[in-house]
Design a protein around this nucleic acid. Sequence first.
DNA 1: CGATTTTCGTAGCAAAGGCTACATTTTCTA
DNA 2: TAGAAAATGTAGCCTTTGCTACGAAAATCG
Lengths: 140, 140
Amino acid sequence: MLEPKTFADQHRRTRSDHAQETAADYVEAIDQLHAGHGKCRVVDLARQFDVSHVTVTKVIARLKREGLVISEPYGPLELTDAGRQLAAKSRRTHEIVFQFLRAIGVSEKVAAIDTEGIEHHVSRQTLECFRRLTEQLQGK
Amino acid sequence: MLEPKTFADQHRRTRSDHAQETAADYVEAIDQLHAGHGKCRVVDLARQFDVSHVTVTKVIARLKREGLVISEPYGPLELTDAGRQLAAKSRRTHEIVFQFLRAIGVSEKVAAIDTEGIEHHVSRQTLECFRRLTEQLQGK
DNA sequence: CGATTTTCGTAGCAAAGGCTACATTTTCTA
DNA sequence: TAGAAAATGTAGCCTTTGCTACGAAAATCG
């Protein structure tokens, strides 16, 4: 066990999962850009996240090390199976949180922003409560 | 400009406010430890956040530079007025989020954890929706 | 085809927040 | 009060995620 990532421990969660959040954001974006233009380039992500292409390159390098992304020099970015799985999971969570915020009365614009921040910090249990309440509120 | 700029604007927020989140967490903790034992020491924060005392020292050094904390060598940590204000605001937000999660059915344990993650990403508008819905659900 | 523009890679720097190891100061206790 | 224990400080290193600057590769345009 190289990394003691025992997330069973409770207090550790809020701190150092930042890299994991970034990973989720990136694969989600790659997935969506793929669905849109059919391909994803470094410069697309740079524009989307409003960072320099260098920052994107560095994050992508890490995601490649972690087996989430594949690409060749000057080539488009592709997700691995693991990358696609993470993207799908992120997208589902994102959607549940967003719909929940809309359902409780948050405006579309603000909900879009807050979802970005919240989605990485919602446990399975809370997510289920979100989904249930969204149904209830919509069922009215 | 192929992509709408709103995306970039949204992501800018989720990215680099980490230092501000840390500041809020720290002053909140300092405030609560103060309320508890009457004083707060580096080692208390180290235990609370489960990091080394060195990490705490470094964060505190930043918070001192930013005028949120005051302390003398080997002395206890004190909040400035600005620090207390931030702590109070953080505590209010924390409480609203926590009570909201409890109200929608999240267990106390999980709510405590998720609140830590969520509280820094909730806009004023969303917070107001949380508060309103909590009232409604409790009013039943 | 050549030239320009766009995209990408690399080098090097900074800030935050992690760590260990070791020195120092305070505090506790025998 | 002397010595041990606890707390704090300092030095030095790492990783992530930012940046600018500059050069190389690809794509586009004339």
